[in-house]
Design a protein around this nucleic acid. Structure first.
Lengths: 238, 238
DNA sequence: TATTGATATTGGTCGGACCATTGAATCATT
DNA sequence: AATGATTCAATGGTCCGACCAATATCAATA
């Protein structure tokens, strides 16, 4: 389980424009730059940041995509209200930033998942094709060779695919990206690992049997359990 | 309601790099470019597309953010499996593209909203502050002067804020961006407009009274109604 | 007063250069 | 033969300076 790679933390080989993104992002999220405010022109920004204009532009492009700024050709660059225009990519920045409310957001994310995923599991039980079922089985049969957290992510992914609900697949991608970094809070406990393995088998059976209600209940139970475990873990830390 | 602007369709003043994004995006989504495949180097792409390398880079930057490609310094650019790495921004491309499944995705989106939003409404009734309530009232009191669809979006937005659930706010932003373009399917009917106005008042009262169950039910009912109306509208078209 | 048109500002694109990282081939060491 | 170090070519990242294109501003005009 604890492979050598797990004790290492990736070095920060940030690109230059990434650093600029972070810097401006920070200022917007913490309120130094308010919605409606106009940013200095690219040329000035480049001068002030002591980088080339092309680099500034790459950064601005990303900020625009995050919903943090609006770029108007011939006019200028304006700060947007990210609560109205921000997307889930931006939420990552909020989570990984040092805004102090990371834990709250994780719990809110778990709440959303607990509401949404059981219903999707039911749809999956109804709509799944035989090919879907085979993919799901393949993941579960991977067994002990693959880390539980990876298997778990894939199980959810294939359930999503089975449901056929495209938007949910993309929302789930976001969940998974986050839980990749915070999943250890749950999976570092041996009992929870066993619990999840059992969940994988149980929900597979329910989906195979096309038992919608059972799939829904199994999904709800495991997510409620997960949520509770993480809550406890957090409280223990505080 | 039908202001002059509504009968006009915005001219396509697409930036050059946007066009490149669309072109490559299309090839990836339709399967011409498969996951794992390596894209030609930037210099070659620029040559082939007959544009400057800087322009290609801006396009690639966006494709990377959409989760469509992975850029490795010193190595190259690889196509990713967007079903595993794509985010909601990419979903927009799928919706507005000509993949033929737009309507299905809209209905799936409505499904998710119907599951999620009532629960959020309940939380909002519990957590709302007096300031939240004032904002909500302000939108509703805007009355006939503002188009129903705008008021409706804002009502949902302020309910989201009242709930305090940050991730939901960002997911809702996505919903709203889509419904801005497809909301006419619902709001072009006079009865539906009246229905929505009533909904605004009803849910305001429930939230003001901190009546969680009522807020949840009111939200569920209106979303179920909306969904049904849009379903009918679609079937009528076909 | 309202419209038009010139001008300045600002984002978008260009071409060409050099830097930084990676991967593969080569060579040296054991 | 296997392993590690070196070199080199390919490729993304950054830089510079120039010009194009859209927009805002304001003076000139009807």
């Amino acid at each position: 389980m604890t492979s050598p790679a797990n004790i290492l933390t990736p070095v920060n080989k940030s690109r230059l424009h990434e650093e600029i993104v972070l810097q401006i992002q920070e200022k917007i999220i913490c309120g130094d730059l308010m919605p409606g405010e106009k940013l200095p022109p690219e040329r000035e920004l480049a001068l002030g940041l002591n980088v080339n204009r092309a680099t500034v532009r790459e950064a601005l492009k990303k900020l625009e995509m995050l919903g943090l700024v609006k770029i108007n050709h011939g006019d200028g660059i304006y700060i947007q209200d990210y609560l109205e225009s921000g997307n889930l990519e931006l939420l990552k920045a909020v989570i990984y930033g040092n805004t102090g409310n990371t834990i709250d957001i994780i719990l809110q994310l778990l709440f959303i998942r607990r509401i949404l995923s059981p219903e999707i599991a039911a749809v999956a039980a109804k709509n799944r094709s035989d090919a879907d079922l085979r993919d799901l089985k393949h993941v579960i049969d991977g067994g002990e060779s693959v880390p539980v957290i990876d298997a778990d992510m894939k199980v959810h992914h294939y359930i999503a695919r089975s449901s056929g609900n495209i938007p949910y697949i993309f929302i789930l991608n976001f969940f998974n990206q986050i839980f990749l970094d915070y999943g250890h809070l749950y999976f570092e406990d041996e009992n929870n690992m066993i619990h999840s393995r059992k969940f994988h088998n149980d929900i597979y059976k329910a989906i195979a049997d096309r038992n919608e209600k059972k799939a829904k209940k199994i999904m709800y139970d495991v997510l409620a359990y997960t949520e509770e475990q993480i809550r406890k873990k957090i409280q223990a830390v505080e």
